[in-house]
Amino acid sequence: MGLDLRKLEHLVAVAEEGGFTRAAARLHLSQQALSTSVRSLEREVGVPLLRREATGVTPLPAGQALIDDARVLHGAARAALHRARRLGRGEVPVLSIGHTPAVTTDEVTALVRTALAALPELRTEVHQLYPPRLAERLRDGELGLGLCRGMRPGGGLTRSTLGQDRLAVAVAAGHRFARREHVELAELAHERLVVWGDPGRSGYTDLLLDHCRNAGFEPDHLRNPIQGTAPVTAVVGTGHVALVTGPPGPAVGGRVQVVELRPALFAPLHALWPTHVTDEVRDAVLTAVGG
């Protein structure tokens, strides 16, 4: 049995809008036509996909599984269409790269420059995104490559490790660590650590907290209240500390000092890409940077 991509699109829209009325308006369909399409899909699958209540519509487990896979299918179809058009028109390929705030702009730039040394015709577009949006745009076929730290790939995505970057300690210029040549990890037991996501939901946060636990202490931590900024900026104007991948030395115009951390600890740089999407440019970039 083949799945009708248009019916899958209708199911996704109903789930995202929480009901048939808004979904029908979004899809420029009558509500009756949309309802008929979803009912037809349920008959084809053989099980109910949505829970219909007076307050709205929510996916049943089978429906949610189909919706997740539908996003992957639509992304692969969209990417295939763009690839065919590009090849047919002889256009220069452009690789759209997304990265989470845990990967700095400088780190992305260095990686792209490495790729350019091997691929001088490479053209890229770079976007910073939070992890959930990065995964969504990769699955939707809007991005060809994602860069992150510790982010779990989830369905439809493949992950590889591009390298390991040494962690350091960032503090405000007036902090007691600021004039030190190095800081021992155990000393952070008496500090408040700024992290970038909630434990259990952010793979990078879990990695950083686990480093502390392996050193014998449970870190006092808080989520960075200013999301989307470079990690090294998280301690500006505070007495807190942050684990960052930047080099030791002054940063943020001298308002932050990055200090060497001992013993040496590392954070992985991960690449993510859509599993079922063919992209020669992406593959060439991954080969050039060692992925």
Results as ranks from 00 to 15, higher is better:
232 V>F: 01
228 G>T: 05
245 T>M: 08
72 V>D: 05
75 G>R: 00
269 L>R: 11
136 E>D: 05
195 V>P: 02
219 P>G: 04
95 L>N: 04
208 L>G: 01
20 F>G: 02
123 R>H: 10
265 L>I: 04
270 H>S: 12
277 V>R: 00
150 G>P: 08
186 A>Q: 12
80 A>R: 12
39 R>W: 08
184 E>V: 09
144 G>Q: 01
260 E>W: 00
237 G>H: 11
248 P>F: 01
28 H>S: 15
26 R>P: 03
268 P>M: 07
123 R>V: 10
186 A>P: 02
188 L>R: 04
137 R>D: 09
46 G>E: 09
100 T>L: 01
151 M>F: 07
43 R>Y: 13
163 G>M: 12
258 V>T: 06
81 L>C: 11
170 A>S: 13
63 G>H: 04
232 V>C: 05
154 G>C: 14
21 T>L: 12
132 P>D: 02
17 E>M: 13
120 P>L: 05
136 E>A: 05
96 S>L: 15
230 A>L: 06
166 R>H: 12
16 E>R: 15
208 L>K: 01
162 L>T: 12
160 S>P: 07
183 V>Q: 09
243 L>D: 03
239 G>P: 08
20 F>T: 02
205 T>S: 01
244 V>I: 01
207 L>S: 08
115 A>P: 01
149 R>W: 03
39 R>P: 05
285 V>T: 04
200 G>I: 13
164 Q>E: 15
272 L>G: 02
15 A>C: 10
214 N>P: 00
75 G>Y: 00
81 L>A: 15
185 L>G: 02
288 A>L: 06
269 L>K: 07
249 G>W: 11
201 R>C: 06
167 L>H: 07
264 A>D: 12
247 P>Q: 13
261 L>I: 01
139 R>F: 13
191 E>G: 06
259 V>D: 03
39 R>F: 08
210 D>H: 09
189 A>L: 10
3 L>I: 02
128 Q>P: 02
113 R>C: 06
248 P>Y: 04
138 L>E: 06
25 A>W: 15
255 R>S: 06
145 L>A: 08
112 V>W: 10
287 T>I: 13
218 E>P: 03
141 G>E: 01
4 D>L: 04
180 R>D: 13
134 L>K: 00
